[in-house]
C-alpha cells in the first residue's frame, strides 16, 4: 500500500488549492537506499503516463515484499490541466516544461516548477512520461540531450522501449523538467509514447516492463531483470522529417508506426472541398516510421511523420 500525500499545495483564488499528489512506496528500512520518481502529466493533454502509473501502482500493491527502494509516483503534475484537457498551465497558458527550474518568487507556473524540483530533489532517477501531443503518435522512445548521452543511454536501454533518440542540445530545452533534474544529479529520462488525449494499453504494459526491469537492475526491486527489447540507437542513422507540402486533410496510408521502405506511400493530403488528392506523401528514406500524424487537419509544414533510417552502407 503506497502512502498518498499532497506534496505541493498552492492556494487558488476561489475556494480551492492547486495540488500535486504523490503515492510513495518504500521498504521498512529507508536508509541507504535508492529512490526513483515516476512522473506524468507535465502536459495536461498527455494521458499515457497516467495508465503507466496505474499499472505500476497495481504491481507494487501486489508485490510489497519486493520493494527495496523508494518509488514515488506522481501521475498528474499539471493537475488542473489533466482534469480539463489543457496542455499548458490553465489561466497563464504557459507550457510548464518550458519554465524549469522555476522560482518561488515568480508566477504560478514557475512556482509549480520550483515545487516539483524541490519535491523530487534527491531522487536517484526520474522517468518523465510524455505522450507527444494530440497531433502525433509516437512509438515508445526516450529522448536524450547529447550532453547527457553517456550517463543516460545505458539507463534508457533498460526501459523496454523501441528507440533512443539522442538529439543536439537546444537552448530552449534547458527549461525542461528533465534538464533541471539532470542538472541537480537526478538521472532523468524523457519517455515519449502514444498520442495526446488517448490511452494505448499495449504501450503502457511495455513501459511497465521497462520500469520493473530498470528498478530490478538498480536494486530498487528485488526481482530478476526482465527480458526486454534493445532499442534502436539514433546515432547509427538519421531522422527524416515528413512535413506537409500543402494544406488539407491528411489521410494516412499506414495505420501504425512500422518499418517502411523508401518510396512507399505514407499517406495523402486531400481537399475535402474539391475532392482532389493534393499531395501524395512518400517516404524519402526507408526505415522505422516512429512518428505519424494523428490529427488530420494540416497546414503547409505540419509534421506528418518521422522516419529513422540507418545511414547508407551501415552493415548493422
Amino acid at each position: 500500500m503506497g502512502l498518498i500525500e499532497e506534496v505541493i499545495t498552492i492556494e487558488l483564488p476561489v475556494g480551492e488549492s492547486f495540488r500535486i499528489q504523490r503515492c510513495r512506496y518504500a521498504p521498512k528500512k529507508e536508509e541507504g537506499i535508492k529512490r526513483i520518481s515516476i512522473v506524468s502529466g507535465i502536459h495536461g493533454d498527455e494521458l499515457e503516463g497516467q495508465y503507466v502509473c496505474f499499472l505500476l501502482g497495481q504491481w507494487l500493491r501486489s508485490n510489497p515484499d519486493k520493494i527495496r527502494g523508494i518509488i514515488d509516483i506522481y501521475p498528474a503534475i499539471n493537475s488542473l490541466g489533466i482534469d480539463s484537457i489543457t496542455r499548458s498551465i490553465p489561466f497563464y497558458d504557459v507550457d510548464l516544461n518550458r519554465i524549469f527550474p522555476g522560482s518561488k518568487n515568480d508566477f504560478l507556473p514557475a512556482q509549480i516548477a520550483d515545487g516539483v524540483v524541490n519535491v523530487m530533489r534527491g531522487s536517484d532517477f526520474a522517468i518523465d512520461i510524455h505522450s507527444s501531443n494530440v497531433f502525433l503518435r509516437e512509438i515508445p522512445q526516450v529522448r536524450i540531450a547529447k550532453s547527457q548521452e553517456e550517463i543516460l543511454v545505458p539507463l534508457a536501454n533498460l526501459l523496454n522501449i523501441d528507440f533512443v533518440w539522442v538529439h543536439d542540445a537546444v537552448t530552449v530545452l534547458e527549461s525542461t523538467f528533465a534538464h533541471a533534474m539532470n542538472t541537480i544529479g537526478t538521472k532523468t529520462l524523457v519517455v515519449e509514447m502514444g498520442v495526446g488525449m488517448r490511452l494505448g494499453k499495449a504501450y503502457g504494459h511495455q513501459l511497465l516492463d521497462g520500469l520493473l526491469n530498470l528498478m530490478a537492475h538498480e536494486g530498487i526491486l528485488d526481482i530478476e531483470p526482465l527480458d526486454v527489447r534493445m532499442p534502436i540507437q539514433s546515432h547509427v542513422g538519421e531522422v527524416a522529417y515528413l512535413n506537409a507540402a500543402c494544406p488539407g486533410l491528411f489521410v494516412p496510408a499506414i495505420e501504425h508506426c512500422q518499418v517502411i521502405e523508401k518510396g512507399s506511400v505514407v499517406g495523402h493530403i486531400v481537399s475535402a472541398l474539391s475532392g482532389e488528392v493534393m499531395d501524395e506523401v512518400i517516404a524519402p528514406i526507408g526505415g522505422m516510421l516512429f512518428t505519424i500524424r494523428a490529427y488530420p487537419i494540416v497546414y503547409e509544414g505540419s509534421l506528418l511523420g518521422r522516419i529513422f533510417g540507418k545511414t547508407n552502407g551501415d552493415s548493422q
Binding site: I10, E11, L12, P13, V14, F91, K104, N105, D106, F107, L108, Q111
Partner: peptide, 8 residues
Amino acid sequence: PLIFQNSI
C-alpha cells in the same frame, strides 16, 4: 482581478 498565492 483574481490573484494567486505568491503571484507577483
